[in-house]
Simulated scan of single mutants.
Amino acid sequence: MVKRWSVSILALVASLAVVLTGCSGGNGVTSDPSASEYRTIRIGKGVSQETETIAYLYAGILRDAGYKTEVIDTPKNREEYVRTLNDGGDSSPDIVPDYSGNLLLDLTHGGKDNPQATATPTPSESDGTNPRASASATPTPTPTAAFNIHGMSSSDISATLPKVLPKGVTTLNASSAENKDALVVNRITAAKYKLSTIADLTGQCKNLTFGVPTGFPAKTYGAQGLKDLYGCTPKKFVEVDSQEDLSHKLAAGEVDVADIFTASGSIPENNYLILEDPKANFVAQQVTPIIRESDVPDSAKDAINSLSGKIGTSDLVFLDQLTSGDQPISSEDAASFWLRENKG
């Protein structure tokens, strides 16, 4: 059976009704006296349950700064929500949280569409030890040539994103919080096949069933990436819409390996083992605010940047634990609780 809640998490949920009654103000954000005169800032929920929770964090910190906010639905397709940001209008979002690596992959169609200037990988990413990193280390790339996102550091990805976004749409500061794809196994499977890295799967892949998010096999880091970098072609892929369902299938032995995001609370709760990715198949993913620049005032940008500086990966794990499992709370309530607990 999949473990869902620790005693501490249950205690936090039990206290929410009391906590949320006093959940305004603070968080070290300076209130802008002119903010109340500005129109309502709309924050899009983004592409996933996780980005929806981040959207409510943005809304809360902006209210602390004095702004009126509204969290709204947005297209689940990244190109579509970026288009709505660019178009503007009374029903368009002004800010949408997303993950940097997947956004760059989607906007460049897996790196096939090279921006006019591609960020040069940092020395640590281009030292020849990483086959994908070394492939991206061309000093002056041809603008029309494909480029290698997988070999880029998180800072390279952040620097490149504004170059592929439409004019007028840009990014604010990325958080250090990361939630990336990872291949995960239970401890029995790890011991049986002596697994610690994806490379250890090479001789066993043909016998193993991989549980993956819907659409994973077609991604650059999916079937082709695993084959090219690790010589790994699984017995079959089982595509699943929900990360929670993926964890259920792994725990029940319905799949042998699962692609579970690194900030999923199911990993520590079930003592799953994340297989290391020495050849960088999976791209870096930092939580990044995407904004329509002209419609977000400077003090609002400052508030979001301040929040981004506080959110770490452990916070994403905690928020996931609150919003998933057998007794989930809403993304809005989870965000309100986190903001109250992280004032100052």
Results as ranks from 00 to 15, higher is better:
residue 129 T to N: 11
residue 156 D to S: 10
residue 311 I to G: 07
residue 337 F to C: 06
residue 1 M to Y: 11
residue 308 S to T: 12
residue 154 S to F: 05
residue 149 I to Q: 01
residue 79 E to N: 15
residue 65 A to T: 13
residue 234 P to G: 04
residue 268 P to A: 11
residue 212 V to K: 00
residue 197 T to I: 11
residue 88 G to P: 12
residue 237 F to L: 10
residue 143 P to E: 01
residue 95 I to M: 14
residue 51 T to F: 07
residue 101 G to R: 00
residue 262 T to E: 11
residue 43 I to S: 03
residue 106 D to M: 00
residue 301 K to E: 11
residue 171 T to Y: 01
residue 93 P to E: 11
residue 13 V to W: 01
residue 326 D to R: 11
residue 16 L to P: 00
residue 266 S to I: 01
residue 167 K to C: 06
residue 70 E to W: 02
residue 233 T to C: 06
residue 287 V to K: 02
residue 140 T to C: 09
residue 227 K to G: 00
residue 328 P to H: 05
residue 180 K to Y: 04
residue 116 Q to D: 06
residue 286 Q to L: 06
residue 137 A to Q: 10
residue 200 D to Y: 09
residue 20 L to H: 10
residue 29 V to K: 02
residue 204 Q to S: 05
residue 69 T to M: 08
residue 320 D to G: 08
residue 199 A to N: 11
residue 121 P to C: 08
residue 134 S to N: 06
residue 265 G to E: 06
residue 290 I to C: 03
residue 52 E to D: 15
residue 60 G to E: 10
residue 44 G to I: 05
residue 48 S to G: 13
residue 250 L to M: 12
residue 324 S to Q: 09
residue 219 K to V: 01
residue 163 K to T: 15
residue 210 F to E: 02
residue 310 K to Y: 06
residue 168 G to L: 11
residue 169 V to E: 01
residue 196 S to A: 08
residue 79 E to Q: 15
residue 17 A to Q: 08
residue 5 W to E: 15
residue 75 P to E: 10
residue 332 E to P: 07
residue 328 P to L: 02
residue 83 R to W: 09
residue 214 T to W: 00
residue 290 I to V: 15
residue 51 T to A: 08
residue 219 K to E: 10
residue 115 P to S: 01
residue 10 L to I: 09
residue 33 P to A: 04
residue 257 V to K: 02
residue 171 T to S: 03
residue 46 G to H: 09
residue 72 I to N: 10
residue 267 I to R: 01
residue 215 G to Q: 06
residue 112 K to A: 07
residue 33 P to N: 03
residue 7 V to Y: 06
residue 281 N to P: 05
residue 306 S to G: 15
residue 97 P to R: 02
residue 170 T to Y: 03
residue 117 A to C: 15
residue 153 S to G: 14
residue 197 T to P: 04
residue 102 N to C: 10
residue 213 P to W: 00
residue 296 V to K: 04
residue 135 A to G: 05
residue 237 F to N: 12
residue 344 G to S: 14
residue 74 T to E: 03
residue 22 G to A: 11
residue 219 K to P: 03
residue 146 A to T: 10
residue 168 G to Y: 07
residue 170 T to S: 04
residue 32 D to P: 07
residue 33 P to S: 03
residue 256 D to K: 00
residue 166 P to I: 12
residue 141 P to L: 05
residue 31 S to A: 14
residue 211 G to M: 05
residue 306 S to V: 08
residue 112 K to N: 06
residue 225 G to A: 05
residue 285 Q to C: 08
residue 223 A to F: 04
residue 18 V to R: 13
residue 122 T to E: 08
residue 176 S to H: 08
residue 109 H to V: 14
residue 252 A to Y: 05
residue 53 T to L: 07
residue 181 D to F: 12
residue 24 S to N: 13
